[in-house]
Amino acid sequence: MNSLLKAENVHKSFNGVNALNNFSCDVHENEIVGLIGPNGAGKSTLFNVITGFIESENGNIEFIGKVITKYPSHKIIKLGISRTFQDLRLIKQMSVLDNILLCFNNQQGEELQNIIFKSNSIAKVEEENKLKAHDLLRHAGIEEKANDLAGTLSYGQQKLLSIICCLAADSKLLLLDEPIAGINPEMREKILTIISELPSKGKSVILIEHDMDFTMRICNRLIFMDAGYKISEGTPEEVRNDPKVIEAYIQ
């Protein structure tokens, strides 16, 4: 399998507390990797470092063969990494459709010179994107909400929408931060189906999730983190039965 993302000896500390301690990992194409561990283990920090929201102090991150460690985040994301946030982020005062449209990457209408001189082709791209957005919404089963304000959706639907936004960007790698925390079982199944289909569409996923049952069902591999260290890595069974993991959870 080809390597998609490679992190080597990534180090980050906040006021002397090590959030990431020479952390290394590898993500291959078309796989789902679960990132588990207690609160404060550095899981979200890893996402922030990969996407350039936080700069690491040390180490190297490679994505599709490019060293992205020093890239600004918009450049990293354009290369093909999308993410969601633990504290759900959407533009709540805009419609569901607009939120998705915002995430498509082929936006020549965001270049000022094009607005005046290329309005026809912008309109065409907008129409195509709208169709694609409706397809994504239909597939997720919330098409009827397209014109509602994102803030009026239920919590679960908002989480679903944030994943749809990642899909709109058509990224190779999705970083999902607790995609099912705090939502009802029916919506969980829906999100689980959507995530589990991703590898067959040529996408990889790293997901942070505390729900062991969920991660066991969906992930090809698990990485267990604690205090910025990688404690254990392997198939879900291997990690679950690793004495070091059991020890860390009991503490």
């Binding site: 600004p72 354009k78 946030f85 982020r89 995430c103 965001e110």
Partner: peptide
């Protein structure tokens, strides 16, 4: 932050 995460400058 959302806009940044959507890959915009």
């Amino acid at each position: 932050i959302f806009v940044k995460a959507a890959g915009r400058n």
